[in-house]
């Protein structure tokens, strides 16, 4: 039953993804990509469980730690670079600040 539920939300999320992105101006394609790239770092949840579970085996701990590190780079790098990029998009005669916040 649990499995069926997972497939159920999988299907819904798939359709939702299509609907959300269908009409995005090409202007925002890069931030959208790096922003959604950061979301794919959600695999960190699995990595944390692998790194933190005590299996009496150092191999899974090492693998888990490596996965946490990589996923965290993906998450932090993705969100911050997206924010930096979006901070540069501005209207004419808008505030002339540049990369002031992050």
């Amino acid at each position: 039953m649990e499995l069926i539920l997972l497939f159920f939300i999988f299907t819904l999320a798939g359709f939702l993804g299509f609907e959300l992105i269908a009409k995005v101006p090409s202007q925002l394609h890069t931030p959208l990509m790096s922003g959604s790239n950061a979301v794919s770092g959600i695999t960190i949840v699995g990595a944390i469980i692998a790194a933190g579970a005590d299996d009496g085996s150092w191999v899974t701990t090492v693998l888990g730690t490596a996965a946490v590190t990589l996923a965290m780079i993906n998450v932090i790098g993705g969100y911050f670079v997206t924010d930096r990029m979006l901070g540069m998009f501005k209207k004419k005669d808008g505030p002339a600040k540049k990369e002031s916040s992050s």
Binding site: G14, S36, I42
Partner: peptide, 17 residues
Amino acid sequence: NVLVVAGCLVGTSGLIL
């Protein structure tokens, strides 16, 4: 479930792009 939802969102939005 959060892995499935977030992964799938990224998967389909990337596909559209």
